[in-house]
Design a protein around this nucleic acid. Structure first.
Lengths: 226, 226
DNA sequence: CCAGTTCTCGTACACTGTACGATTGAGACG
DNA sequence: CGTCTCAATCGTACAGTGTACGAGAACTGG
């Protein structure tokens, strides 16, 4: 296993006048991850191969392996990079409810902005971003008055809800044509599925509204007072 | 694209006396899907390759492609097979609440019984089993008095919650050693994540209890009356 | 017997992740 | 200057992947 560069920044002059292809930045973890996210964003999860990634970085495929153990790790890092979160100015004692909703909606928005992330989430190591968000949620709920004994249950309830909503939403985020086709196909089988056909479940769903409603219910129920 | 055998069952005598390898059953969609589920259950999602699957069926790799379009489709079918559900004897007017909880807990149990399914769920076509369960949930909530206008929101709230709980649960279903290591690693960084370290979020969580609690809250909130 | 349909499968191809080892280049030390 | 060391890059090779293509086998009805 190669040694990670750790804290010290890799310094390298690489005189630009020497080679033909000037202006090439040196390889680095950050650059690799950023480019991986670009690639994933533009062509989906299947399009990420080590060779393609290296090409886009102007490097040889095997050069990546000095910075990274696995392709798996590239996925982990890309996911965590996309999920980073900086709470917006902790100035003053704010409303815990607003803080929580803000963070959770940002979470959802971040994942929907990168549709590949939802499919990656299961079975991935939880990186610093995810842990940071869990920590924040935990603090917020604690501040809202949830007893320590109930804290874990509360965290997971909210967390699970947000995860599920995001993943489901992501999988239904196909083109309008696809959705219409699916609902159409449903209509033909409406003998079998009359209720969800009648309610046009696949087409007329107000995803954002449903998300907020369920979230409010959970927060109300989990939180003492009021 | 090959023509699917449709309804007519493929019959073939294949006289057993002729070849050396007797007792070979003929290929069929059902057998393929069943064997795929076996393979997935025993060695995880990565172990499913068309060649391995064919080997286990005593067939050539390309023979599968007469019954199936894609490897993707094999995944779709395996997932849907595992998610089949028969409501337990619709005898008499039962308690809607009990019905709903029963079905949703069965859903969760089925997915946890096949750990690969959680990772497959995102981005997969919804097959008959999944639609059937959505239909059932829909009918149940309707029976519980949810107005048609609120039905979609209610369905998705519950659905999302169950999905998220199951997927999350599945991803933390690693060995006890791994979990302990993770929490240990967390302890070393407890400066960064004090709250979730203190509450031993990764270790002491009562998953089943949390699942029930959140589900009850949602059903209470979404349902009129009481 | 033939013609047609249904089903099986061997070969080939483009592509994947990555093990291994050679190569390059920059600083350190003499 | 020469050499030694170590960080970093990358070419080659290998086992394995999904599947397109087309040749054949097995069974059918005539």
């Amino acid at each position: 296993m190669p040694v990670r560069p750790s804290g010290a920044p890799a310094r390298r002059s690489r005189k630009p006048g020497a080679g033909a292809a000037a202006g090439e930045q040196p390889l680095s973890l950050e650059r690799i991850v950023a480019t991986a996210v670009e690639l994933l964003d533009s062509h989906g999860a299947d399009s990420l191969s080590m060779r393609r990634l290296a090409d886009r970085l102007g490097a040889g495929a095997m050069s990546l392996y000095w910075h990274v153990d696995n392709k798996e790790q590239v996925f982990d890092l890309a996911l965590d990079a996309v999920l980073a979160y900086a709470p917006p100015t902790p100035a003053g004692p704010r409303d815990w409810r607003a803080d929580a909703v803000l963070m959770l909606e940002d979470w959802r928005a971040a994942m929907l902005r990168h549709p590949w992330s939802a499919a990656l989430l299961p079975r991935r190591a939880l990186g610093p971003s995810m842990l940071g968000r869990l920590e924040l949620l935990s603090q917020t709920l604690s501040r809202a008055g949830v007893a320590d004994a109930d804290l874990n249950v509360a965290i997971w309830s909210v967390w699970n809800y947000v995860m599920g909503a995001t993943i489901t939403r992501g999988s239904f985020d196909r083109s309008a044509d696809d959705l219409a086709a699916a609902q159409q196909q449903l209509a033909e089988l409406s003998g079998r599925y009359p209720t969800i056909d009648r309610s046009r479940l696949l087409l007329d769903s107000d995803w954002d509204g449903a998300f907020r409603k369920g979230l409010d219910l959970l927060l109300d129920g989990l939180t003492p007072g009021r």
